[in-house]
Nucleic acid binder design. Structure first.
Lengths: 159, 159
DNA sequence: CATAAAATGTTTACAAGGAAACAATTATCA
DNA sequence: TGATAATTGTTTCCTTGTAAACATTTTATG
């Protein structure tokens, strides 16, 4: 047991003054840890988790409107426009303007896009397993449950 | 109880295909929620949480080296350089090149900087309380504990 | 000591992401 | 119906943050 373990606010000789208990700070640091691990393991694929998730959701909701997609992933419309265009150019996504509402855009995957999603599903949903986490399995499940509830993703948030 | 509550993967009519259980996605969405609330409540102050945390840590570690500061907050050196310069121009931070190692930079707050930190401490550490969270107090404490342990910030992570 | 290597910040050049203004289309309503 | 408002996505411009090359200083090595 080292000395600085006696002082809850000191880390690596730096006094964070209670920042260690701040939800915002902890979320940021945790996300960085996950992201760093992702890049180490899967950086070579060339898609980041957020980009894969765009393909993933289109795959599960063929014909989804671009705005709905953006909203469901909390990506801004302006940014989504760029993502969709580059996927279209790359040949993973098809855009269709429906006659019923010609303002909107309906998205679906090309055969190539579907193949990519299927091939890399184990990567994007499995990399987290290879992260050597200080949490045991039960704690990890609880963390996920609490985050889902907090963020309003979970049904638990419904009365 | 609505129908789509029976299907764990559907939200707002969109099938996320299990993304709701992904740690990376949940961390991102949770962080966005915290950040949005911050802006709503404290956007007028003109400093974001990460920027305030720079002042906060310097205040608790006067004379801290710029690199240590960057590391402790997981901010890259290149970015820290910009942050420090703008705080210096603004009159919140003083830089000092120590004789013992003239490559490095020691940071401290000006009187103005200290005053700002003190004045806004309740804002930056309290805004989270006003976020109407679906988590009760115990759950919030547990979430913070798990994040701290996961991210390696907590002493719990030490064997 | 002199040269090579490492450490510390800074600069430059770029990528990710967002806000605001915009164009096109559809809905509202007087 | 015709004008106004709202919706949907795009464009433009800007901010934030990063990577890579760099300058300076210190440490290590022959």
């Amino acid at each position: 047991m080292s000395l600085d373990m006696l002082d809850p606010q000191v880390r690596d000789g730096i006094n964070l003054g209670g920042l260690e208990q701040s939800l915002g700070f902890l979320l940021r640091v945790s996300q960085l840890k996950v992201f760093d691990h992702f890049f180490e393991k899967l950086g070579h694929i060339g898609l980041k988790p957020g980009e894969y998730s765009v393909l993933w959701v289109i795959s599960h909701n063929p014909g989804i409107r671009q705005g709905q997609l953006a909203q469901s992933l909390a990506i801004k419309n302006a940014h989504m426009t760029k993502l969709i265009r580059s996927f279209e150019v790359y040949g993973f996504i098809e855009r269709r303007i429906p006659e019923e509402d010609r303002r909107s855009v309906e998205l679906s995957l090309t055969e190539q896009g579907e193949a990519f999603v299927a091939r890399h599903k184990p990567d994007f949903f499995g990399y987290i397993q290879s992260l050597d986490s200080p949490l045991d399995e039960g704690e990890t499940r609880e963390l996920i449950r609490l985050l889902a509830k907090f963020s309003g993703i979970s049904r638990e948030s419904v009365q």
